[in-house]
Amino acid sequence: MSRGVLVTGASRGIGRAVATAFAARGDRVAVHYGSGRADAEETLCGLAGAGHVLIGGDLGDPAAAQELAEAAIEGLGGVDVLVNNAAVAPGPGNVHAIDTVGYADWQRTWRRMIDVDLLGAANVTYHVANHLIGRGATGSIVNVGSRGAFRGEPDYPAYGAAKAALHAFGQSMAVALAPHGIAVTSVAPGFISSERQHAKLDGPGGAAISAQSPFGRVGTPEEVAAAVLHLASPEAAWSSGAVLDLNGASHLR
Rank of each mutant, 00 (worst) to 15 (best):
H127M: 10
T8R: 04
P90E: 00
G91L: 12
G57E: 13
D117C: 14
I73L: 10
S35D: 12
G60K: 04
A97Q: 15
D39L: 14
P62T: 02
L76P: 02
R108W: 07
V81T: 03
G134N: 15
L82S: 03
L82D: 03
V29E: 00
P90K: 04
G26C: 07
A63V: 07
D58S: 10
W110C: 04
G78W: 15
L82Q: 07
H96W: 07
Y103K: 04
G26F: 13
R112C: 00
G49K: 04
D105A: 14
A137G: 06
L47S: 05
V7I: 09
L68F: 15
V101F: 04
A40W: 08
N94H: 11
L59Y: 14
A21L: 03
T20S: 15
N130A: 02
E42K: 09
L82W: 05
W110H: 12
D39Y: 13
L6R: 03
V128M: 12
A64E: 12
A10K: 03
A87M: 06
L82N: 01
E70V: 00
G9V: 08
D117E: 11
A71L: 09
V101T: 06
H52C: 02
G77Q: 06
N84R: 04
G36H: 15
N85A: 07
R16C: 05
I14K: 05
I98A: 13
I114G: 07
G77M: 07
N130P: 07
G136K: 11
E41M: 07
D99F: 05
N130I: 02
L82G: 00
A30F: 11
G102P: 11
A89R: 10
A30E: 05
D117S: 14
E42W: 03
V83D: 02
A86G: 05
R12Q: 14
A65M: 09
A24L: 10
T109E: 02
I14F: 13
D27M: 04
R3C: 05
A69S: 15
R3E: 05
G93V: 01
G77A: 01
G36M: 09
Y126N: 11
I55K: 04
A86Y: 08
E74L: 15
R37C: 10
Q107H: 15
V95T: 14
P62H: 11
A63M: 10
H32A: 03
I133W: 13
E42T: 12
A121C: 12
D115Q: 11
I114D: 03
V18D: 04
R135V: 05
G120D: 11
Y33R: 01
H52A: 01
V5E: 01
H32P: 09
A121Y: 14
P62V: 04
G49V: 01
G93A: 03
M113D: 06
D80S: 05
V7K: 01
I55W: 13
R16V: 00
A38Q: 11
G9A: 08
A121V: 11
L119K: 08
A30D: 05
I14N: 10
R25F: 00
A86D: 09
T109V: 02
R135G: 09
V128A: 01
L76A: 01
A97N: 07
A19F: 09
R112D: 01
A40E: 06
G77Y: 13
E42H: 08
A72Y: 09
V5T: 00
G77E: 09
V124I: 15
G75T: 01
G9H: 13
T20C: 06
P90F: 10
E74W: 15
I98W: 15
T138P: 04
V29M: 00
